[in-house]
Computed example of a mutant assay.
Amino acid sequence: MEIIILILAGILFATAIYNLLQKQLLRIIIGTALLSHGAHLFILTMGKLKRGQPPIIMEGISDYVDPLPQALILTSIVISFGVTSLLLVLAYRTANENNSDDMAQLRGDEHE
């Protein structure tokens, strides 16, 4: 199961890097979102996909799940949502001000 999730995280990383290298602003933003999702899966898998009881100490339970990866992922989800929101607002503002979302045109490259 861990191998499948690691392969999925690798596919997300590859797709994210492909989108980050595109010229359109929206594709770059989608690439950053996919990169964060791949990181979430990677952190979850490195925390070992283990089944057990919730981390509440009770008598008779000896197998607990580690809550640290889940807490890190929850924090990372909130941060990536904020970053994605900020990037979408900046892209909207840029597209309205410059009437373009092409990165080459925004840089002022006249050759492309």
Rank of each mutant, 00 (worst) to 15 (best):
N99W: 09
Q105E: 15
H40K: 09
I79P: 00
I7M: 10
M1K: 09
H111K: 15
G10A: 15
G60C: 02
A91H: 03
N96C: 09
T75D: 01
I11W: 09
I3L: 14
P67C: 06
Q22T: 10
L41M: 12
L86W: 03
V89P: 04
L41T: 05
S85Y: 14
S80Q: 00
I56P: 05
D101K: 05
M46K: 13
V65D: 00
E97S: 05
S80M: 06
R27W: 10
T84L: 14
A9N: 07
K50D: 04
M1E: 11
L6W: 10
L20N: 00
T32R: 00
Q24T: 12
N98T: 03
E110H: 07
Q53F: 15
T94W: 03
S76L: 11
T15L: 15
S100L: 02
L8Y: 13
G52Y: 02
S100D: 07
R51V: 12
I57V: 15
L12G: 06
L26T: 07
L86T: 08
I7G: 04
T32H: 07
M103D: 02
L41I: 12
T94L: 06
L44S: 05
F13A: 12
A91E: 01
K48P: 00
V65Y: 01
D66S: 13
K48F: 04
T45M: 12
L44V: 05
I30R: 05
L90A: 12
G38E: 08
S76A: 13
N19A: 08
L106T: 08
Y18N: 03
L35I: 05
P54C: 04
I17P: 03
I77W: 03
T84N: 06
F13D: 02
H40G: 04
Q22E: 10
I56D: 13
D109P: 00
L49N: 09
I30H: 03
I77Q: 07
I73S: 04
S100P: 02
M103G: 01
V78R: 10
G52V: 02
A33W: 12
F13K: 00
S62H: 11
Y64D: 04
A104Q: 09
E59K: 15
M58G: 04
E2P: 06
S36N: 15
L34D: 05
L34Q: 12
V83Y: 04
L20M: 07
N99Y: 10
A16G: 03
Y18W: 09
I61A: 06
D101S: 11
F42S: 14
G52H: 02
H111S: 15
A33R: 02
I5L: 15
